[in-house]
């Protein structure tokens, strides 16, 4: 499924997408790769797409809970986020792979 053009996401930031009933936060890392996780923080429902990222982690903007971008695991003791497979195709389209 095509989520949109990769240029919709500024470098180093995230944007949220709704697919069927799920909300997915897609992040464009500064090394050019993309990651996708469930968009809602399991702690208090914070919007993860508004969080700050580096190459490994995303930090929820509400209470600074941190999750691994690759595995979805919390660095604290919160339940993990769902990881979605995403890639950018040759036409700069952001593709969500079928799960």
């Amino acid at each position: 499924m095509i989520l949109g053009d990769i240029s919709d996401i500024p470098l180093g930031e995230g944007r949220a997408y709704a697919v069927d009933d799920t909300q997915i936060a897609v992040f464009r890392l500064r090394d050019g790769s993309v990651r996708a996780l469930s968009a809602v923080c399991p702690h208090r429902g914070g919007p993860l797409a508004d969080g700050q990222i580096d190459l490994k982690f995303v930090v929820c903007p509400l209470h600074l809970n941190t999750f691994d971008l690759a595995t979805g695991c919390s660095t604290g003791d919160l339940p993990p986020l769902t990881v979605y497979a995403v890639r950018v195709d040759d036409h700069d389209q952001l593709i969500l792979e079928d799960s």
């Binding site: 499924m1 989520l3 240029s7 919709d8 996401i9 500024p10 930031e13 995230g14 944007r15 949220a16 997408y17 709704a18 697919v19 069927d20 009933d21 909300q23 936060a25 968009a39 809602v40 429902g45 919007p47 993860l48 797409a49 508004d50």
Partner: peptide, 15 residues
Amino acid sequence: VTPGQFRTSLPLTVL
């Protein structure tokens, strides 16, 4: 200043 600077992160309309 950036694409989707004010795009909402929650809740969303479904694609």
